[in-house]
């Protein structure tokens, strides 16, 4: 066990963790932040995507101990003061959600993309979310939502 301290969605957390605990299981099981999902546990599907120190990562491939001192953003922090982010609103309006299990990871990948590239082309959007599997939507309405959010120009807020 070792003690870690990290910041998640602006809040500070200090916990004892096993060295082998993944960041994903730490978030979900130790902190109850279950918005981040587990789809494969092997870094293949992107369902567990969060933003760590400003970059999107598969949280199933990061050890909690490695994240000591990090600043994390998860889906729970995407809406501010009860208002969806422009990106979340665009997902809502464009029916970019079906079963919803890939949605948190998808939103975090898209958030990361729009911060790096506020006006991505369709192809750049595809690059940005290629690591996030969605079995329901066929991605089209997700791509349209991200394009619409980028046009509003405030999606990375």
């Amino acid at each position: 066990m070792r003690e870690i301290t990290l910041t998640i969605n602006g809040e500070s957390y200090t916990r004892e963790v096993h060295e082998h605990r993944t960041l994903l299981h730490f978030l979900r099981d130790d902190l109850g932040l279950t918005g981040t999902k587990e789809g494969c546990g092997a870094g293949e599907c992107g369902a567990c995507t969060i933003i760590m120190n400003g970059a999107a990562v598969n949280s199933c491939l990061v050890l909690a101990a490695e994240a000591n001192g990090s600043v994390l953003e998860t889906i729970e922090g995407a809406a501010k003061d009860g208002t969806l982010s422009a990106l979340q609103s665009a997902f809502h309006e464009h029916h970019a959600v079906q079963c919803g299990f890939c949605t948190p990871g998808m939103v975090m990948s898209a958030t990361d993309l729009l911060r790096r590239n506020p006006n991505p082309s369709r192809d750049e959007i595809i690059d940005g979310i290629e690591g996030n599997f969605c079995r329901c939507t066929g991605y089209e309405q997700i791509i349209e939502a991200i394009l619409a959010a980028s046009k509003e120009g405030k999606s990375h807020a």
């Binding site: 979900r28 099981d29 932040l33 279950t34 918005g35 981040t36 999902k37 587990e38 998860t74 889906i75 729970e76 995407a78 809406a79 969806l84 979340q88 997902f91 809502h92 309006e93 029916h95 970019a96 959600v97 079963c99 919803g100 299990f101 949605t103 948190p104 939103v107």
Partner: peptide, 21 residues
């Protein structure tokens, strides 16, 4: 018409059995 479930899913608040203890 907007989907009735998308906001719960977009905020991570929709609870699946995999999230339950």
């Amino acid at each position: 018409t907007d989907r009735i479930d998308s906001k719960a899913k977009l905020t991570g608040q929709a609870t699946y059995v995999s999230d339950m203890t």
